[in-house]
Simulated assay, not measured.
Amino acid sequence: MGKPSLHKVYNKTYQEEAINYKNHLLILGLNKVTCQTRYLYLKEFFCWLETLQIHQLQGITTVEIAKYYDYLLQRKSSRTGQNIKQKSIHDHMRNLQAYLGYLLEIGTIKVSPASHLKFSYPNEKVERIIFTQSEIQELYSVSNELEKAILNIAYGCGLRVGELSLINKEDIRFTENLVIVQKGKNSKRRIIPITNQIVSELESYLESQQESKNKAVFLNSKGQRMQEWTFNSTLKTLISKTEFGQRFSTEELNKIGIHSLRHSIATHLLENGMKIEQVQTFLGHSHIESTEIYTHINQQQINELME
């Protein structure tokens, strides 16, 4: 996310709402930089609402959301003087959708005015490191118990790094072979099936953690819930143990994180013949375009899979 401009909000309700939302994100376990950015994005929206003389959350309709999108399309960057980037616009709108979903969840509003709106992801190409299926097998072969447990949930279940951090022991249903993501992106809940082998390996890992009373599945060296940056660091350490990892440059290694495992499983599922709509459900995407972005399969292959 790019750094948003600062905007002054005068309405006390809006001031409190922005702070409450930031605290909500912090409780969810998002890193402080992300929480601050989303807080500032929301402040800009509230500032814009004030210019329209809209001073109550209940006054926000689909019309205002659409107009705000048009406003962002025209907004200039205070740093460059040029229109803000498409990715920044996308981040603004996705954050707004998430905020309205949060209001719906806590009962502040009865219907989200942005729930049925679709904001196209920018076409800017982002270079991603995608592991091959053989490289994933090599990661498993050199992993210790913790690293294997992370692979089983991050790769095997396709979790986002924030979801990985938030997962609790009670979310793994061993008797049903399921992992439950209680609050994914936009507070969406989803259920992911897991194999008997993953069940066995996760049971073994959690048995080694029985002394801890912390409900989190993954703990750091201090016995606290593991955060996003630690997961990414652990993955890089694991990669350094492999033969293929030795070939990565520092620049390439810096691009790798838990998201690389998510991109990889999406690609591998499609390569192995799963329909793209099924992969969409597996990843928890609202729109199939997002699923296509997460894969490295060409358009012809995608068309064949959708037939």
Results as ranks from 00 to 15, higher is better:
S5F: 11
L6K: 14
K8R: 09
K12P: 11
A18I: 15
I19C: 06
I19W: 11
Y21V: 02
L25W: 02
L28V: 00
L30Q: 13
L30V: 13
T34G: 01
C35T: 08
Q36H: 12
T37R: 13
Y39D: 01
F45R: 00
I54L: 07
Q56C: 14
Q58M: 12
T61D: 13
V63H: 15
E64K: 14
K67T: 02
Y71C: 03
K76N: 09
S77E: 04
R79F: 10
Q82M: 05
I84V: 05
K87P: 00
K87R: 15
H90T: 10
D91N: 15
H92P: 05
M93F: 05
R94T: 14
L100Q: 08
E105L: 15
T108S: 11
K110R: 15
S115N: 13
S120V: 10
T132D: 12
I136W: 07
I136H: 09
Y140N: 03
S141E: 01
V142R: 09
V142C: 09
V142E: 00
N144M: 03
L146T: 12
K148M: 11
L151Q: 02
N152Q: 10
I153K: 09
L159M: 12
L178E: 07
K183T: 15
K183G: 07
R189H: 06
R190Y: 03
R190A: 04
I192Y: 08
P193A: 03
I194M: 11
E207P: 00
S208G: 05
Q209T: 06
S212K: 00
A216Q: 09
N220V: 06
S221E: 14
K222C: 04
E228S: 15
T230N: 12
T234D: 05
T234Q: 15
L235G: 03
I239V: 11
I239C: 06
K241G: 04
T242H: 01
T242I: 07
G245I: 11
Q246E: 11
E251V: 09
E252H: 08
I256V: 10
G257M: 08
H259D: 08
L261P: 04
R262W: 06
S264A: 13
S264Y: 06
G273L: 00
G273I: 03
M274P: 01
E277R: 14
Q278D: 09
L283G: 04
H285M: 05
H285G: 01
Q301I: 01
